[in-house]
């Protein structure tokens, strides 16, 4: 490479590295704020703020979903010992079911129950046909 091109090569490479470093540092600084939701363990430990609206995500605990007209209550768990109750009035998304990952938005009251204004179903990366899914579910654990 001739000297002119070599100089340009170094300059442009420095531009790439510089831009990556700046953005990387910004993202590192904003790390907590970029997370979309709090985990059940963060809610239980008090890391998630009380008295104001937050988003929390976890799995809907099996056999915890109770429904009275449009009011649903269910337990959100991380399956590692942390869980809390959620109450929601409204129409749940199609994918809402026990064992499914969901994200809820609302404030945690004095009784420790999160009064949700919004419930979103989180889909995982697994796709399969219904017959295959039945086989997975029937398999003894």
């Amino acid at each position: 490479m001739n000297p002119v091109r070599k100089r340009r090569f170094i300059l442009v490479s420095a531009l790439v590295v510089g831009a990556a470093t700046v953005i990387g540092l910004v993202l590192l600084g904003l790390r907590e704020n970029i997370n979309m939701f709090y985990l059940p363990s963060q809610v239980n430990s008090g890391e998630a703020p009380r008295d104001r609206s937050i988003r929390a995500g976890g799995m809907v605990l099996e056999k915890s979903w109770q429904r009275d007209e449009l009011v649903s209550t269910f337990v959100l768990t991380d399956r590692q010992g942390s869980e809390f109750t959620v109450r929601y009035e409204g129409i749940l998304p199609d994918l809402f079911r026990e064992g499914q990952g969901v994200i809820v938005e609302g404030a945690i009251g004095a009784d420790g129950v999160l009064a949700a204004r919004e419930v979103l179903a989180k889909h995982d990366e697994n796709y399969m046909p219904p017959e295959l899914a039945d086989m997975h579910l029937e398999r003894p654990k």
Partner: peptide, 13 residues
């Protein structure tokens, strides 16, 4: 919209 229950989320990275 049908899967998550929302068209768009401003907080999703």
């Amino acid at each position: 919209r049908p899967t998550w229950g929302t068209w768009w989320e401003w907080t999703d990275a």
